[in-house]
Design a protein around this nucleic acid. Structure first.
Lengths: 212, 212
DNA sequence: GTCTATATCCAGATAGAC
DNA sequence: GTCTATCTGGATATAGAC
């Protein structure tokens, strides 16, 4: 008989996290409507009805998931911005990290797709739409600032910073989509190729490094 | 009383095309499962039941749509390959054209998304999956050939042609996704920025051109 | 907290009049 | 060919036993 309230709270939090994890995969793969609550429950290993003891309904579950995804994304973006490295290094690190995360299927690609698909679909519930509208440009702003800073010391190529930020995230989203479509056949392109749109060519040092 | 068989055939073809057009928008926006046959029928302006006189079921309608989308995409890719221009010019023209098509909402972005979403979702019907598996690398192959040819005469930057092709289509898909997400707020990045990943910088002529 | 029913609703597909 | 009305199945959400 678990009467310890702390233990109860922890068990509940773990259960909730498990539901969110399963839901993230399902929603990302199938979209909101196509995902059945019963599937999520099955993935977690619980009865369908029990899931309603943790979330009031499917919509609330979806919104909790989106909020979590955005929180992680903006946290990562802002952590990057706060680092002391020069802008060009941050941009290279960011793209390398993102491509790596996508390739490793770190729940990262599904998360990107989840957001993309949610902002796309007209059927996305209103609360989720509002959340997206409120959060979506933060990562763009972070990157645009980074590009502008890099242009001031000429370590980043010319071009409207907002356009560069769009190109950056467009590349990332496209890769996530590509990975999702091709699955095991996915092979990430060399990050240095992608970076050519943003940074000057690195000096061809004798032992030139190549990612991937 | 329309007894003329030719007239009948034409009327039917037009009706079918109208259904496909409406279905393309709906499926692209909402995904397969979320799209209701009733919505498509409503968009076309016909009763729900009547749609079943043109397509046996929702799945067949979806597959017809995918087949049409791929046919158009590969036709465009192969027409491009057949042109006499040098490879670098073709690549520039292709990306410019694709970005333009996405920006103009030429049913192009929805079509890209339709394919992407269909290859993504586990719930996509088997016939559609097979179609996608059969067709999906054609556009990649066309671009990879183009990059390889351009590298032979040194008008295209170095890098594995397959990786370059992936980067190219990734960019296009990402832009389509971006457009879909941001709708009216979408502003396409300068094509020249995107091209920097693939082509050497154009000579900074006095009256340098800028797309978009 | 967890399960097994089950009520309710809604979308795909069909029937049949006109 | 076109419509309205309806059957049927499946998914969300609830009820209630344990």
């Amino acid at each position: 008989m678990p009467r310890d309230p702390e233990q109860n709270a922890r068990a509940r939090a773990e259960r909730t996290a498990g539901i969110l994890r399963a839901a993230r995969r399902r929603f990302a793969a199938d979209g909101y409507v196509a995902t059945r609550v019963a599937d999520i429950a099955k993935d977690v290993g619980m009865a369908q009805g029990l899931l309603y003891h943790y979330f009031p309904n499917k919509e609330a579950l979806f919104e909790a998931l989106l909020a979590d995804a955005f929180a992680r994304l903006t946290a990562a973006a802002e952590a990057l911005a706060a680092q002391p490295d020069p802008p060009a290094a941050k941009i290279r690190a960011a793209l390398t990290g993102l491509v790596g995360a996508i390739a490793a299927d770190d729940t990262f690609a599904p998360t990107m797709l989840l957001i993309a698909q949610a902002s796309l679909a007209d059927t996305t519930p209103a609360g989720a739409r509002a959340l997206i509208a409120r959060e979506r440009d933060r990562p763009y702003a972070v990157l645009a600032d980074l590009f502008a800073a890099g242009q001031r010391d000429a370590t980043v190529l010319a071009g409207d910073p907002a356009a560069l930020a769009t190109a950056f995230w467009t590349t990332v989203k496209g890769l996530a989509l590509h990975k999702a479509s091709w699955g095991p056949d996915f092979r990430a392109p060399d990050v240095e190729i992608l970076l050519r749109a943003f940074l000057p060519a690195p000096l061809p040092s004798p032992g030139g490094r190549h990612d991937v």
